[in-house]
């Protein structure tokens, strides 16, 4: 039986609060601005999860930036059966040759998608390519890729919010929360339950910050 989504109630705990996210975004923005001082930067966001992070991060960077968006298929999606290979669903809209590129991710866990993207982007001959992620889940790492800017290192828990989804929902939460296990035993549906204003459902639980 499908269970209706309860945007706040489905979250067991807040892992990274809205305030923590915003403070970290400012910190990362300052670091990136200092590192790229005197240069211009291309931010490449990986849809869909990194959109909120990208939107906030770009406004905290003080050097000239342009933005671009990419989307790649995910294993287990409808595209899996058609080709069995990861595909670029949305490519860059402009060349990044000789540009300084910062790849903006919402979360890195296995590193499989990131590994593919890095290889792909390096083939576009950027002047430099660095990686920025809001969340890092190293316990799940298969492919070790150096990450230049990390917001929070988190334990191996299923998180949603601030762009991260389960079944395409929960992205509009303002914080990063841990999804209740009973929620992902059944697929979410959107056609039931009251509309809920996104926001923290209580005192946030501090996540481990790397300060990287």
């Amino acid at each position: 039986m499908k269970v209706p989504i309860d945007l706040q109630g489905d979250v067991a705990e807040v892992l990274v609060s809205e305030d923590q996210i915003q403070a970290k975004v400012l910190e990362l923005g300052a670091r990136i601005s200092a590192d790229y001082a005197g240069r211009q930067l291309t931010l490449v966001s990986v849809l869909k999860g990194s959109l909120p992070f990208m939107a906030d991060l770009m406004r905290s960077i003080t050097v000239p930036v342009r933005i671009d968006l990419m989307e790649v298929s995910s294993y287990g999606g409808s595209s899996t059966e058609s080709s069995g290979l990861v595909r670029i669903l949305k490519d860059l809209s402009a060349s990044i040759a000789d540009e300084h590129v910062l790849l903006v991710e919402d979360i890195i866990d296995t590193g499989l998608t990131l590994n593919y993207l890095v290889r792909y982007l390096r083939g576009k001959s950027p002047a430099s390519l660095r990686i920025c992620t809001l969340l890092d889940k190293p316990a799940r790492r298969l492919v070790e890729i150096p990450v230049d800017y990390t917001g929070f290192t988190i334990d191996d828990r299923f998180v949603v919010g601030y762009g991260l989804d389960f079944g395409e929902f929960y992205r509009n939460l303002r914080y990063v929360g841990v999804l209740r296990p009973e929620v992902y035993s059944t697929p979410p549906v959107a056609d039931a339950g009251p509309a809920v204003e996104p926001g923290p459902p209580g005192d946030p639980v501090a996540a481990a910050e790397t300060g990287a």
């Binding site: 294993y75 899996t80 069995g84 290979l85 990861v86 499989l112 998608t113 590994n115 593919y116 298969l142 492919v143």
Partner: peptide, 28 residues
């Protein structure tokens, strides 16, 4: 791509076959 499962080995466990498909998918 490095597709490995098309003519791949007989896996001992279905989880191994699934893992191989994931690696294939991401071209590892």
């Amino acid at each position: 791509a490095q597709r490995s499962t098309d003519a791949g080995p007989a896996f001992a466990h279905v989880s191994e076959a699934e893992f191989a498909r994931i690696l294939d998918y991401y071209q590892v």
